[in-house]
Amino acid sequence: MSLDPSGEGIAAEGVWARIAHLAEGRPFTMALVCRAALGAVGVDGAAVTVAAGTDARDVLHASDTVAAELEEWQITYGEGPGVDALEGGGSTLVADLGEHHCALRWPVFTPAALGSGAKALFALPLQVGVIRLGVLDLYRAEAGGLGARLAEALDYADAATALLLDGVDATHPDSDPHQAHVHQATGMVVVQLGVGAAAAYAALRAHAFAHGRHLGEVAADVVARRLRFDGDQGHDGR
């Protein structure tokens, strides 16, 4: 078990290749992302729940009945690893739900989850900075940590995030040296349009797409004040 990532450079491309293989030419869906994750991460089930507004939660997909129940318990009881991950706690990885501290942390959810047949649950937030989109929950029927497979799990969380943002081209956004620009521009557009960060990010992406430009270039123009999103200086200023 090591964080040493040598030889994992192909992982991210592997994710989309795997999903594409399962898709057989059909559009990519969350169900495909979940299904691809099972074998790659070595888990028994996967589910994606999205945040709709402040409190509302929607289960987008659950790969089996156990995964569906785990989402249901978390939404009903308002507690669980997925809830913590979604509320900003970061990745919440539980190798053994039978351990005492789990029952202390999630007193209602833990027995329900064990009763459904889950022993380990790994909740990965789907987010871009403050943009919290949802959570990918991966469960196992047997206890045990993810170990080095966490890297794969994170890749699938990225894939699910990209899919939620409807941008399958976002396979490796961080390789762009302009990534700081993208986030800064998101913040600027939040103010310009008076919208939330998710909508501002979507506006940037839509502009890039509509003009056939890279997101990083568009963002750099916003940061350099060559492009505004709120009026006459216009969306087309370059």
Binding site: L146, L150, H183, G187, V190
Partner: peptide
Amino acid sequence: RQEEIAAQLQTALTSRVAIEQAKGVIAE
């Protein structure tokens, strides 16, 4: 655990993105 280190690294990087976004809001 190694995994906890990983989660902590992830949190630090996510916070960094949030700071970039906030810089944008304030700059504007």
